[in-house]
Amino acid sequence: MLTLWTALAAWYGAGVGLLLPRAVYRLAVEPEEPWRDRCPAGHALDGAVSGWLGRAWCDVCCRTYGPGEPVFVLAGALVCGLLAAVVGVRPELGVWLLAAPFALLLAAVDRAVNRLPDVLTLPLAAGTGTLLGVAALQPHAAGSWRRALLGGVVLASVYFLLFFINPSGMGFGDVKLALTLGVALGWYGWGVLLAGAFLGFLLLAAYGAVLLLSGRAERGTEVPFGPFMVLGALAGVLLGGLAA
């Protein structure tokens, strides 16, 4: 049964991954710029100006813009398959599977332009908290909704303090993303929250060290934190699900 759920979750993740590239292309702009709805030459994407899902394909230029689909297909399948395999058939699994594509989208946008758009971070926080409240009412739920909400407040507060101390080293979008990740990690316990947050910083430090040692960056070079926050939180949720 668990193998079937894992396979279905992996297929779901792969399918959702196919839908993300256009959204990444449209959202990966500087804060003062509007969301992209056309290719660099000014042509409508795939003949639909308002579309958000699928490839960022231009019929006139006959090419795709933005990130390629295979990366998102693989990442979606891997993340969702792992979540299903480790968490098992529990109510919170549905929440993780719904939140995972948005987390991948945020990580990709942040990696592209060092920005975490409010249009994603704030609804994701509200949706995750609300859906976990519903999950907590179901049988066999393995976490605490109250602790999840408190975890979101605690982690966001820590990030806000770091932002206040050194605003050049952390963006306010990271603070908003921390709210969602704190809710997810807090669901399984304070130890999971601490582990997931620490892993995010550890992964960022390791990546920064690799860039410095390879000469691809200097001290003071801005590195997007969002992808590492998401990876750390994913590891934390997997640890929490495994322990539960």
Rank of each mutant, 00 (worst) to 15 (best):
R90G: 06
R147T: 05
V109T: 08
H140V: 01
Q138K: 04
A100K: 00
A84Q: 03
A136I: 01
A100Y: 07
G88W: 01
L150A: 13
R55M: 04
G68I: 14
V73H: 14
C62G: 13
L124T: 12
G143I: 05
R90W: 02
V113R: 04
G129C: 08
V87R: 05
T121Q: 13
R147E: 10
P70K: 09
P117L: 03
A56G: 08
G66M: 11
T128R: 06
G143D: 02
L97M: 11
T121K: 08
G94L: 01
A75Y: 02
A85L: 10
P91G: 09
T64W: 06
L74W: 13
P67W: 10
S144Q: 06
A148M: 06
V89P: 06
L82F: 01
A103D: 12
V87C: 06
L97F: 11
V86Q: 04
G129F: 05
T128I: 09
R111S: 15
P91A: 01
D59N: 12
G133H: 06
P67D: 14
R147G: 07
F72C: 03
L150Y: 08
A85N: 03
G81Q: 12
L131K: 11
R115T: 11
V86L: 09
A112H: 08
V71A: 13
N114W: 08
R90V: 09
C80M: 12
L98A: 13
Q138Y: 00
W96R: 05
E92K: 03
G81R: 05
C58H: 13
L137V: 01
V79I: 10
R55H: 05
G143V: 00
G68W: 12
L120C: 09
T128F: 06
P101D: 00
A125W: 14
P101V: 11
G143L: 03
T130Y: 03
L150H: 01
D118F: 04
P117M: 07
V109G: 14
N114Q: 14
Y65V: 13
V95H: 02
C62R: 15
T64G: 14
A107T: 12
L149W: 07
R115Y: 14
C61P: 07
T64C: 15
P91W: 06
V73K: 05
W96Q: 06
A107C: 08
V119R: 12
W96T: 06
P70I: 12
N114V: 11
L106Y: 13
L74K: 11
E92Q: 08
P101L: 06
V86C: 10
L98T: 00
A107K: 02
P123R: 15
V79Q: 09
L98W: 04
L98N: 01
F102C: 09
R147N: 02
D59C: 03
L83S: 12
Q138H: 01
V134C: 08
S144H: 11
A142K: 00
T128P: 00
S144L: 06
W96A: 11
V109W: 09
D59G: 06
L150K: 11
L104K: 04
C58G: 14
W145A: 04
A100C: 07
T64R: 15
H140Q: 00
A108H: 12
A148W: 10
Y65H: 15
A125Q: 08
T130V: 14
G94I: 04
V109Q: 10
V60P: 04
